[in-house]
């Protein structure tokens, strides 16, 4: 079933839509959550949360297609779960590794609760990423959005792992510089 048909089912509030979503995108969403959490049970729970989220947000904002919307939901759920359980400290997941890499350029320990600041940073990151060459942006997103291991990114993009690492390093340095110029660091 294609996205349009699934969305039509959702708008009719037909629960078959959720089954279709699970079948079409369940694996991708589960993997995304699993890479962040490193726990099968927690990842399953995030997928369930994602389905509830879709159901509650009818009609969903799917201007860019259903898949990105679902990914955003499941990632948000996984990150919330991670924050609740503070399991990022246990390490070992790709998300934890990504966290370490980002900590190199954002060394602060202080968390921010200010929504204004968060929106400001989000706008800055979005603008920064839009300004990157496409390939560099893809690598950054696969690593820090989807928490994909370097080797898998290399496989998907037909690059060597070293080239991916180098690209990530360059992007982090540029991001650091960009944040510094904007007074965000």
């Amino acid at each position: 079933m294609n996205d349009a048909a699934i969305i039509a089912l959702l708008q009719k509030r037909d629960e078959q839509a959720l089954l279709e979503i699970r079948q079409a995108y369940g694996g991708l969403c589960f993997q995304t959550a699993y890479r962040i959490l490193g726990s099968r049970e927690d990842a399953e729970e995030c997928v369930s949360d994602m389905l509830i989220g879709v159901w509650n947000s009818i009609p969903p904002d799917t201007s860019e297609g259903l898949c990105p919307y679902l990914l955003a939901l499941v990632r948000r759920s996984a990150v919330d779960c991670l924050r609740r359980t503070t399991c990022q400290k246990r390490g070992g997941t790709q998300y934890a590794a990504a966290l370490d890499e980002i900590a190199e350029i954002i060394p602060s320990d202080e968390r921010t609760e200010s929504q204004v600041e968060r929106r400001e940073v989000l706008a800055a990151v979005t603008a920064f990423l839009r300004g990157l060459p496409e390939r560099q942006r893809q690598i950054f997103m696969l690593r820090y959005y989807a928490a994909l291991p370097v080797r898998e990114i290399a496989g998907k993009l037909g690059m060597t792992p070293n080239a991916v690492k180098l690209s990530l390093m360059r992007t982090r340095q540029k991001l650091k510089e960009d944040f510094r110029k904007k007074g965000l660091l």
Partner: peptide, 30 residues
């Protein structure tokens, strides 16, 4: 802001940027 905040924020990225990522995620390795 710390690194965890930063990674959390990425969840709120605009959909078009996530769309590109989703396509690649669904793609098999080269």
């Amino acid at each position: 802001m710390n690194a965890a905040d930063f990674l959390e924020l990425l969840s709120d990225m605009p959909q078009d940027m996530i769309a590109d990522c989703a396509v690649l995620l669904a793609k098999p390795p080269a």
